[in-house]
Design a binder for these strands. Structure first.
Lengths: 235, 235
DNA sequence: CGAGGCGTTGAATGGCCTCAACGATGGTGG
DNA sequence: CCACCATCGTTGAGGCCATTCAACGCCTCG
């Protein structure tokens, strides 16, 4: 069903953290020049296509990732084989925090859209955070952010009617964005996020289009009628 | 609907951490005698009745809690006022980690059953964890555990039919327990945990009783037919 | 050109929700 | 002590919404 593409073919060179455009927002934002000198391991940048898995559940957590662009889904499986997407991770977010605890990864991490990520050895973070309070605090903050996301995913996206859930998902996609334009996910992924079937996701999205709550601006890019979607989301 | 009882009347004395029966499993398990000497603030123990709130969403996080016995629910609210229970916290678990980051609490924390908790100032943990790698690692581990719980709550308890969800909840209640005996929650709470109505929760539990998957051993204490519940949970 | 993936739509079923009623229980006050 | 009330679990009836199973058009790609 989901094609699994190797990361190998996605390598896009070594990253230049010091001059990273996202640096202020990234995990390494608080590092000094001296800190960077301590990083002897290469930090690689990858260009991943939709469907590519960065890692799988249970894999040894030698690496952590920062997302530069695009979206990555975190997927868990039920005993019966059905999948549930428990979170999506986007620009400036960190993937694989659990690796710091020497646990295997807790999810499959799979690209939803074309995405750029930076990969760095877990060991680097572990070493740096020992002596760097700011990085260390940054890690705690991100752990908490993941937890808040997980809770919101439950209260907002797994509660209420299908219409409400889809509306909340759409609104979530454009939060903290300058425009109300966004790319949609496949109906199958939407279903796995919202705990509904792909058919219901499809019907609901199609309905929103007919009601002009959703207007296609470019190929698979939609403008949202935020006020009306918000009305649907809340009652 | 839910009575809110003040913590004040629940005070049960100062805790004696050094001789705590739960110490090896508790947050402070790795502390030395010297560490304890640094704690100048009192650590209080409370005996809370069902319905009592330890804290509410947005409250200033001056304190953290360890649960000694019983269960505490973490509750979030939707804009329309309906509530969703996003996690339950039980013996040896820590409540209020988010307080370490100077955020307000992210949930209402309310006792489900009669419970005993220890309360300690967030400041104490913040100070001790600065110089104590073991405590510090313990904190990270607990953060990750909360995250795993949150994810499991979504995949196991918010996915599938009502029958499956209730079965999974019951099994979860006796996991890592010596016996298969457990107390049930009110049908309203079950509904809020599983994203179903109280009536559906009631009907499902009543059905389980009729099928002898659930046998009352004492007043509101039930023995589970684990193999058959597991069968229901998985298909 | 055929195959396969994806989004869409239809029809029918069924599971859950809604609204309502009722019994049991436990606490309160006369 | 007992009538009274509130709460909680249970059950019924009816309706709606999501699922299920199926078919079809469109697109990409081999």
């Amino acid at each position: 069903m989901v094609k699994s593409v190797s990361l190998r073919e996605a390598w896009a060179g070594e990253a230049d953290c010091r001059n990273c455009a996202l640096r202020t927002a990234a995990l390494f934002g608080g590092l000094t020049e001296a800190d960077f000198d301590q990083i002897h391991d290469p930090i690689d940048q990858y260009d991943v296509k939709p469907g590519t898995a960065l890692y799988k559940t249970g894999d040894v957590g030698d690496y952590m990732y920062t997302v530069r662009s695009g979206s990555i889904k975190l997927v868990q499986y039920l005993p019966d084989g059905s999948q549930r997407i428990v979170r999506i991770v986007r620009s400036t977010d960190v993937l694989g925090l659990e690796a710091l605890l020497d646990e295997g990864y807790q999810h499959d991490a799979v690209a939803l859209q074309r995405a750029e990520v930076c990969r760095f050895p877990t060991r680097v973070v572990r070493n740096l955070s020992r002596d760097n309070p700011r990085l260390h605090h940054e890690l705690l903050t991100r752990w908490q952010r993941a937890l808040n996301e997980a809770d919101a995913w439950l209260t907002e996206l797994s509660t209420g009617s299908a219409r409400q859930r889809v509306a909340r998902l759409l609104l979530r996609l454009v939060r903290d964005r300058e425009t109300s334009e966004c790319e949609l996910f496949s109906r199958e992924d939407m279903g796995a996020m919202l705990g509904i079937t792909t058919e219901t996701a499809s019907r609901t999205i199609a309905g929103f289009k007919r009601e002009s709550l959703l207007v296609e601006s470019r190929q698979n890019s939609f403008l949202l009628d935020i006020p009306n979607l918000r009305r649907i989301a809340e009652d």
